[in-house]
Amino acid sequence: MTTIERISRATGLLLTVACGLIVSACASVESTPAPALAENGAIAVLPLANFTETPDAGRAAQAIAADTLRTAGVAQVDTMLATDSGDALDPTAQPNLERGLDWARTQHAKYVLTGAVEEWRYKVGVDGEPVVSMTFELRELPAGKVVWSAVGTRSGFSRSSLGGVAQKLARNLLAPLAVHR
């Protein structure tokens, strides 16, 4: 092996390691072990609490979570609308868990996905990178006991969209709930 080939290999290895470090620094995800979901186990997705300064971030994250579950193989995903929870007229109202669990029981759901959005914004600065932080809890009905939870944050690059970053984070967070056929 010539010196040029060695330098080329070493440079390639260093670039691979550097790229890996950059990508891993952009996201952080932690979760508890997920239960094995049956393909026919219906999940009701409740409105997510919005602890951000961005109006409707909870509703946007709820829609992304529901679609992510559908693409992960969950056959029946029902989404509780704000009008069902009685909070449609007040954008600052936080979801009522008991009302949501009651609604999910009427939908004959086996599980309920709840959660919150803690961050949903573009960072202040020259680049204005998007950053999203969410938590999820999966509750088993009828009792409403938490059987799985996850928390994560993700930031993007200056040309990334906030919605795209949120989709990637939701996909990473909800991946353990994918239905394996």
Rank of each mutant, 00 (worst) to 15 (best):
residue 28 S to P: 01
residue 67 D to W: 05
residue 32 T to A: 03
residue 23 V to I: 11
residue 11 T to N: 08
residue 18 A to G: 00
residue 26 C to H: 09
residue 62 Q to Y: 03
residue 22 I to M: 14
residue 39 E to C: 09
residue 62 Q to A: 03
residue 75 A to Q: 00
residue 54 T to A: 05
residue 17 V to P: 02
residue 62 Q to M: 02
residue 21 L to A: 14
residue 37 L to F: 01
residue 68 T to Q: 05
residue 59 R to I: 14
residue 60 A to Y: 11
residue 75 A to C: 02
residue 38 A to C: 05
residue 67 D to F: 07
residue 39 E to I: 10
residue 49 A to V: 08
residue 29 V to T: 00
residue 64 I to F: 06
residue 55 P to D: 12
residue 70 R to I: 11
residue 47 P to N: 11
residue 31 S to R: 12
residue 45 V to S: 07
residue 61 A to G: 06
residue 65 A to M: 00
residue 13 L to N: 13
residue 38 A to I: 00
residue 57 A to Y: 10
residue 27 A to E: 14
residue 69 L to F: 08
residue 11 T to C: 04
residue 66 A to Q: 04
residue 65 A to H: 04
residue 42 A to W: 02
residue 42 A to R: 04
residue 49 A to S: 15
residue 75 A to E: 08
residue 14 L to S: 15
residue 55 P to E: 14
residue 58 G to E: 02
residue 27 A to H: 12
residue 65 A to L: 00
residue 76 Q to A: 14
residue 42 A to H: 05
residue 76 Q to P: 07
residue 75 A to D: 03
residue 15 L to P: 06
residue 52 T to I: 07
residue 26 C to L: 14
residue 28 S to E: 13
residue 32 T to R: 00
residue 61 A to D: 04
residue 18 A to S: 06
residue 68 T to E: 06
residue 60 A to D: 13
residue 42 A to Y: 07
residue 52 T to P: 09
